[in-house]
């Protein structure tokens, strides 16, 4: 295995493009090292992006949007004085991943690019409408977050491409987000179901919403029907029931060691209701 520490994303992209065999990028390493140790994936080329300038920065831009470096850890997000005021659901989702120790290393980018349908930070990233910068041999382009995952363990990134920054939109007035997941324990588990909700209110009425589910399909999925079920409502019981039904209807899960099809489908509705209530309360302030 070759270990590289490039100084720029362009260099990183070039190393990756020229590499033979399996290439992995190393940010927090909380998936890459597990796969290495478990003999699941032994990369021929490992590209550590943490020596690239700015990868640890959390920046609030003039328009109120946020740019997060690819090596920003969950702990750095949680400790940031302002990010959590704007996007508490996103910060909480990231904070749910693994232990305190994992929080010291794990990153949003890694969580996204690992391609797990159960990744905790991804449903709420979908819901916020986040985008990522993708740097490759032909330069850098901006891509919607929901266009990155392709299936379990797979992304739509081409050879030589890597995520070089994450962009979260401005929070704006009357907005609220939330993420809830179901795990059998209180910590340390992979989500059996996850639900991210982002919405905006005008007075008591929901004017916009984006809702995404995790661990109920081959990738995290946006569920427009679930969003439609609550837009224009005051999140009354009928809206919540419609939301739950839409969330459950969007599920295409599998039976596995973590849960059954029936369980995931049912609990997706339960979590959607609970997460929507939190986001709604946050939006109303």
């Amino acid at each position: 295995m070759q270990y590289h520490t490039p100084a720029t994303f362009e260099d990183a992209a070039k190393i990756a493009f020229d590499a033979q065999g399996i290439t992995r990028f190393l940010a927090g390493g909380t998936d890459v090292l597990v796969q290495l140790r478990s003999d699941l994936v032994e990369p021929d080329t490992l590209i550590d992006v943490k020596k690239i300038e700015g990868t640890n920065n959390i920046t609030k831009n003039a328009d109120g949007s946020w740019t997060l470096g690819v090596a920003v850890s969950g702990a750095e997000m949680s400790e940031h004085p302002e990010l959590g005021n704007d996007w508490p659901g996103l910060v909480e989702a990231m904070d749910l991943i693994g232990s305190t120790q994992v929080q010291g290393r794990a990153t949003l980018t890694g969580n996204l690019c690992n391609g797990s349908p159960a990744a905790d930070s991804v449903p709420v990233m979908f819901a916020t409408g986040a985008t990522v910068s993708v740097t490759g041999p032909d330069g850098t382009r901006e891509v919607a977050v929901e266009d990155i995952p392709a299936g379990p363990g797979k992304t739509n990134l081409a050879k030589g491409e890597l995520v070089s920054a994450i962009h979260i939109p401005p929070r704006g007035q009357g907005g609220g987000d939330a993420y809830l997941r179901f795990i059998p324990r209180t910590e340390m588990d992979i989500a059996v179901v996850g639900c991210g909700v982002n919405l905006r209110v005008d007075g008591d009425t929901i004017t916009e919403a984006r809702i995404a589910l995790g661990a109920v399909a081959p990738t995290v999925v946006l569920v427009p029907d679930a969003a439609a079920a609550i837009v224009g409502t005051k999140l009354d019981d009928a809206a919540l029931d419609a939301l739950a039904a839409a969330a459950s209807a969007a599920c295409n899960p599998i039976d596995d060691k973590r849960g059954t099809v029936e369980f995931r489908t049912h609990v997706a509705g339960v979590l959607a209701k609970r997460a929507a209530k939190i986001a709604y309360d946050r939006a109303k302030g």
Binding site: L26, L33, L46, V102, R105
Partner: peptide, 21 residues
């Protein structure tokens, strides 16, 4: 990274030493 028995600090932050090269 599931058991924490290898916990160390790296620049003051907790890390599982098995999850870092």
């Amino acid at each position: 990274g599931d058991c924490g028995a290898c916990t160390v600090t790296v620049d003051g932050r907790l890390v599982c030493a098995c999850l870092m090269l």
